[in-house]
């Protein structure tokens, strides 16, 4: 039985242990440190290690009850340690017993390795040849670089997406909302029961400008009118262009018929001012019909749009350049909000 079976007890020199396990500590039976591996000596001076008790150097986090007499040569005991003095680096490893009653504690940095390498300025020579720390550091950096590229790409895609969405919602000529966006917004305010005033505005004599001064002048007029509508409403309100010279306004939270009337009159007044196009003055007017969600027990979009249209038709029929509220239409004659007094 001799010769062919490897002995289960071998003699290993301290130098060999230093190479194999550069972060090990050899302790005596009282758990005082007799020897420290070279990397251990890189992170703490010998004076802070040699001759000192393990529990003086480290807080022993695992196991909670630490009974050295139970150290076994063959089983070992997993340990979690952290230095008592700063930097309080955490270490994980194993302690095994030696025949003389002492033991060997071999540790590594575990998941805190990135911080440890920075804190102690370690180099690849400080790690065992089998240690994957360098590969791990490489991987951390490589993945961070790749992630950064992906994040940049995501940001650019996000910007492109919101630009595309905004373009899909606006009228290219005037920047006003388009019909699709308006319908989505109206569905939203109806659903959330947000009170609002709905105004329909048609330009008067617009065709005249197109025919006599030209389409470029017509386009310019539409841009100026859109700007006026934006100026005369609040920033959260909606200005939509839904046809050639037809606009719709959604005035959020507006439930006061007298105020709605003042806003409409002011718009009509400003639109009626001559608009300069390359030295030619273009003259258009506007007619407005409006209705308010508070006029209805259950605001219904089709009904409100019909009523705003009917009020607009009344404005045009009565000589243009005026505002008509749906309150004067038949069907509203006896309603509580049919006058210009504040509703609600």
């Amino acid at each position: 039985m001799t010769g062919s079976v490897p002995s289960d007890r071998i003699g290993v020199g301290a130098r060999a242990l230093d190479l194999l396990m550069p972060m090990h500590l050899r302790v005596d039976s009282d758990l005082s440190v007799l020897h420290a591996g070279p990397t251990m000596l890189r992170i703490r001076p010998a004076s802070r290690l040699i001759g000192r008790a393990l529990s003086e150097i480290f807080e022993i986090r695992r196991p909670r009850s630490f009974n050295p007499s139970l150290f076994s040569e063959s089983l070992g005991q997993k340990v979690h340690l952290s230095f008592r003095d700063p930097p309080q680096t955490s270490l994980k490893g194993v302690i095994v017993g030696l025949p003389d009653g002492g033991g060997i504690v071999n540790v590594s940095f575990g998941i805190g390795v990135v911080d440890a390498v920075r804190d102690y300025g370690l180099t690849s020579a400080d790690f065992a040849a089998t240690d994957l720390t360098i590969e791990m550091l490489y991987l951390v950096e490589a993945k961070s670089a790749a992630m950064e590229q992906s994040r940049d790409l995501n940001q650019r895609l996000q910007i492109a997406k919101s630009t595309a969405e905004r373009q899909a919602q606006t009228d290219a000529l005037t920047g006003a909302w388009n019909r699709r966006a308006l319908e989505m917004e109206l569905a939203r305010v109806i659903e959330t029961r947000t009170p609002f005033t709905l105004m329909r505005l048609d330009l008067d004599f617009f065709k005249n400008v197109n025919d006599t001064v030209g389409h470029a002048a017509g386009d310019h007029v539409l841009q100026v009118v859109t700007r006026i509508l934006g100026d005369e409403t609040r920033s959260g309100d909606i200005v939509a262009r839904v046809g050639g010279d037809e606009f719709v306004l959604v005035l959020h939270g507006l439930v006061d018929a007298a105020r709605a009337d003042r806003i409409a009159r002011r718009i009509i007044e400003r639109v009626a001012e001559p608009i300069d196009f390359d030295g030619t003055l273009c003259q258009v007017g506007s007619s407005i019909g409006s209705t308010m969600s508070v006029l209805y027990d259950r605001p219904d979009l089709d009904r409100m749009q019909r009523d705003a249209d009917a009020a607009l038709y009344r404005s045009k029929h009565c000589g243009r350049g005026r505002h008509t509220s749906a309150t004067i239409l038949s069907g509203f004659s006896s309603g509580p909000a049919s006058t210009h007094a504040p509703a609600a």
Binding site: T123, S124, A125, I134, L137, Y138, E141, A142, A145
Partner: peptide, 12 residues
């Protein structure tokens, strides 16, 4: 610079 660093991980 990131690439230089990644390559330098290759050896001392």
């Amino acid at each position: 610079e990131a690439l230089r660093r990644l390559l330098r991980f290759g050896g001392e």
